[in-house]
Simulated scan of single mutants.
Amino acid sequence: MYKHILIAVDGSDLAERGARHGLALARQFAAEAIVLTVTEPLSPVAMEAAIAGGMRDPLAMYDMQMDEHVRKIDGPVSAHARELGVAIDLVRETDDSPADAILRVAEMRGCDLIVMASHGRRGLDRLLLGSQTADVLARTTLPVLVVR
């Protein structure tokens, strides 16, 4: 049924639970599993401050720190994939909008299912914090499995 499953993770326990669901589906359907972590770009203000503080290449340093951050997120997901015997492709995208990155990668990779977690915030919390899951749901025609 599904051949290319995009699994969005962010390091939260809930996202890890979502990844477990996505990996189980990938195993069941012998599907390709793409595990996506989206990191924020270095802000211009932070870059200027780092340069003013004497840092030579703040962008390279930030990129190395984000690589380490993503490795920590991907570790438990990779371990679970190995336990299930599921091959995964770990992908990191940098974008101000995780929803934009999720939709872009899903399209580029020909995904037929997106798996992601939602904290289920409502009211003012949702308005202030935004909902990447709601944004993905509103903008895609692909099936989306939302884990809560």
Results as ranks from 00 to 15, higher is better:
70 V>Q: 11
71 R>C: 03
71 R>M: 06
72 K>Y: 10
72 K>Q: 12
73 I>H: 03
73 I>T: 04
73 I>A: 00
74 D>M: 14
74 D>E: 14
74 D>L: 13
74 D>C: 03
75 G>A: 15
75 G>D: 07
76 P>H: 02
77 V>W: 04
77 V>S: 11
77 V>Y: 08
79 A>F: 09
79 A>R: 14
79 A>M: 15
80 H>K: 15
81 A>E: 14
82 R>E: 10
82 R>L: 09
83 E>W: 05
84 L>P: 05
84 L>F: 06
85 G>L: 04
85 G>H: 08
85 G>R: 06
86 V>M: 06
87 A>K: 14
87 A>P: 05
87 A>M: 09
87 A>T: 12
88 I>V: 15
88 I>N: 14
89 D>N: 15
90 L>V: 14
90 L>K: 15
91 V>F: 08
92 R>G: 10
92 R>N: 09
92 R>D: 10
93 E>W: 11
93 E>R: 15
93 E>H: 09
93 E>N: 10
94 T>W: 08
94 T>K: 11
96 D>W: 12
96 D>S: 12
96 D>V: 14
98 P>W: 00
98 P>S: 01
99 A>R: 00
99 A>C: 02
100 D>Y: 07
100 D>E: 13
100 D>S: 08
100 D>N: 13
101 A>R: 02
101 A>P: 02
101 A>T: 01
101 A>Y: 00
101 A>M: 01
102 I>F: 04
102 I>Y: 01
102 I>P: 01
103 L>V: 00
104 R>P: 00
104 R>G: 09
104 R>N: 06
104 R>S: 06
105 V>T: 15
106 A>T: 03
107 E>V: 01
108 M>T: 14
109 R>W: 03
109 R>V: 07
109 R>G: 02
111 C>D: 08
111 C>F: 02
112 D>P: 04
112 D>E: 12
113 L>H: 03
113 L>W: 06
113 L>M: 03
114 I>T: 04
114 I>K: 00
115 V>D: 04
115 V>T: 12
115 V>W: 09
116 M>P: 09
119 H>Q: 11
119 H>D: 00
119 H>L: 10
119 H>V: 04
120 G>Q: 08
121 R>P: 12
121 R>N: 13
121 R>V: 05
121 R>G: 08
122 R>K: 13
122 R>Q: 13
122 R>H: 12
123 G>L: 05
123 G>D: 04
124 L>Q: 02
124 L>W: 09
124 L>M: 15
125 D>T: 15
125 D>F: 10
125 D>P: 12
125 D>N: 11
126 R>K: 15
126 R>S: 06
126 R>C: 03
126 R>M: 05
127 L>D: 02
127 L>N: 03
127 L>F: 11
127 L>V: 06
128 L>W: 05
128 L>K: 07
129 L>F: 08
130 G>V: 00
130 G>K: 02
131 S>L: 08
131 S>C: 09
132 Q>P: 04
132 Q>K: 15
133 T>D: 01
